[in-house]
Amino acid sequence: MSDDTDLLLRRILTDVLGLKQNQASDFTEETGLFGHLPELDSMAVAGLLTELEDRLDIVIDDDEIDGEMLETYGGLLAFAKAKREQA
């Protein structure tokens, strides 16, 4: 299950943010997201979190959302994997 989280997360980012085909494929753990990708602004964050919940079958509480989680691809991936393991 957790291995497909990476692929799913890349698809979600591509779909929600309208990224170029294969742009998310090049993301590494250190790739900056919020504040680095112009497509990921505060409005897009809400849509991204909703899609994460829907497609990964998780629930994200408001108090779990912080800048660190959205700072890098690795941070968001670690968060998504941890949430799926809890589910």
Score class of each variant (00 low, 15 high):
S25W: 09
M69C: 04
F27N: 06
D61C: 02
E30K: 13
T28S: 13
R55E: 06
I58A: 05
G35Q: 08
L33I: 02
E53L: 04
H36P: 00
K20W: 08
E51L: 01
D3A: 14
A80I: 02
A24C: 13
D57L: 11
K81R: 14
E64W: 07
L48S: 03
E53Q: 10
I58L: 07
F34V: 09
M69E: 01
L8R: 12
I65Q: 00
L13F: 09
L77A: 09
G67R: 08
F79W: 03
L9D: 06
I65M: 04
H36V: 09
I65K: 01
A82M: 11
D54T: 12
S25G: 14
R10T: 06
L56K: 02
G35A: 12
E85K: 15
N22Q: 15
L8M: 14
E53W: 04
I60M: 00
G74D: 05
N22I: 13
D4T: 12
L19E: 13
Y73C: 04
Q86I: 11
L77T: 02
D41N: 12
A78Y: 00
G74F: 05
L17Q: 09
D57I: 07
H36E: 13
T31C: 08
M43D: 08
A80K: 02
Y73W: 08
E39Y: 01
D26M: 15
T72S: 10
N22T: 15
D63G: 06
R11H: 12
D15H: 12
D62Y: 09
L19N: 12
N22Y: 15
G47R: 05
P38K: 11
D15E: 14
A87W: 05
V59H: 12
A78G: 11
D54Y: 07
A46N: 05
T72I: 01
L7M: 12
M69H: 02
G32R: 10
E71T: 11
P38R: 13
D41C: 06
D15I: 05
G35R: 06
K83T: 02
L77N: 10
A87G: 14
E30V: 06
E85Y: 05
I60F: 01
